[in-house]
């Protein structure tokens, strides 16, 4: 008379959980698929084609199909619309941007890079997520919103990866650099850009704690690996990974960070002078560290070690301030 049975109850429960899981599963759950379909409209496709052509001029239809994750029909329609409205031109089956198309592409790139800058300065999203989120947001922001965003951020010149942000007028100051793998042995360079695509390679760079704007000294180059020093640490990268890093070569005279190391490597009973905070430390985190007295020229030493190793307490301007390791690696010092 009573339909209750604990086994059936459990089965019903797991059934419900399974359905919820299928709907909200990260990446390919139904909910996210629905979101993706909704986003897959002509505007997005056009803007993505524009960006693609901005970076690689003169590419064929099949390359576009390969590079972009849209249905072929949508891409074909979009290309047609773009030809009609004079955003792209076709020569010998190869597409490239017209002047109008170039301007449009720069507007999208401006929105993308400003949004990445915004995410890096004003939110707590992890670096890995910036690009993905900006890819979505760039299609949503209106021209006015982009300008407001720029004002809010203080009209930044570079995005957090070191890429220049186009101005409102469409000017862009591309930095001329060389790939890290092309930096000759026993030469100094400075990292000006870390590419965030493909994400797998970018993740490897992030894991190694290689920082934008840091100086590098190349120790060894071979087919299989590059060995270089930066901020007092030694890094070994495969050339494929190193190709995601752009540097400018430095004269010996410009090398200022020869004896630089990271605060995380300071040992007890040593004293050091702070040289600065790495560009990788951004937004509110950077402000806090500065306010706490981690400024150029300040003396720092280790005050206390923690039973679990992290964080460490540093004596700075008369006060013990505990910092976690991921903060200490971003503070540059030189031993006294």
């Amino acid at each position: 008379m009573n339909p209750y049975n604990p086994i059936i109850a459990l089965l019903v429960f797991f059934g419900v959980v399974l359905v919820l899981f299928l709907i909200f599963k990260p990446k390919n759950g139904l909910f996210f698929k629905y979101q993706k379909v909704r986003k897959e409209n002509e505007k997005t496709a056009i803007e993505d084609i524009l960006k693609l052509l901005y970076h690689d001029a003169n590419i064929s239809k099949s390359t576009i199909f390969n590079e972009l994750d849209f249905s072929q029909n949508l891409l074909l329609e979009s290309i047609e619309t773009m030809m009609d409205s004079g955003l792209i031109k076709k020569e010998k089956e190869l597409f490239s941007l017209t002047k109008d198309g170039h301007e449009y592409a720069l507007r999208i790139i401006r929105a993308h890079r400003l949004w990445e800058k915004y995410l890096s300065e004003k939110t707590g999203f992890h670096k890995e997520e910036w690009h993905k989120r900006a890819e979505l947001k760039e299609h949503e922001l209106s021209g006015e919103e982009v300008d407001d965003l720029s004002t809010l951020l203080g009209n930044p010149r570079y995005d957090p990866h070191g890429d220049p942000i186009p101005t409102k007028a469409g000017k862009i100051h591309e930095k001329k650099g060389i790939l890290l793998s092309d930096l000759p042995v026993f030469n100094f360079g400075k990292i000006i850009h870390i590419e965030d695509e493909p994400i797998a390679v970018y993740k490897q760079i992030l894991e190694k704690n290689i920082h934008l704007d840091s100086q590098v000294y190349m120790k060894e180059t071979s087919k299989n690996r590059l060995v270089f020093e930066s901020e007092g640490e030694q890094f070994i990268l495969s050339p494929i990974v190193a190709n995601n890093i752009t540097v400018i070569s430095l004269d010996k005279a410009d090398v200022v960070e020869k004896d630089t190391m990271r605060l995380s490597n300071l040992e007890s009973n040593q004293k050091a002078i702070i040289i600065g905070i790495s560009k990788e430390c951004r937004g509110e985190n950077r402000r806090r560290l500065l306010d706490l007295g981690f400024v150029k020229g300040a003396t720092v030493s280790i005050d206390l070690l923690n039973p679990l190793g992290d964080p460490k307490a540093f004596l700075i301007k008369g006060t013990a301030i505990a910092l976690r390791k991921d903060q200490a690696v971003k503070i540059l010092i030189t031993k006294r």
């Binding site: 007295g293 700075i316 301007k317 008369g318 006060t319």
Partner: peptide, 9 residues
């Protein structure tokens, strides 16, 4: 008073 420099900020 013992931490004047920091406080002067």
């Amino acid at each position: 008073a013992s931490r004047l420099e920091r406080n002067l900020n």
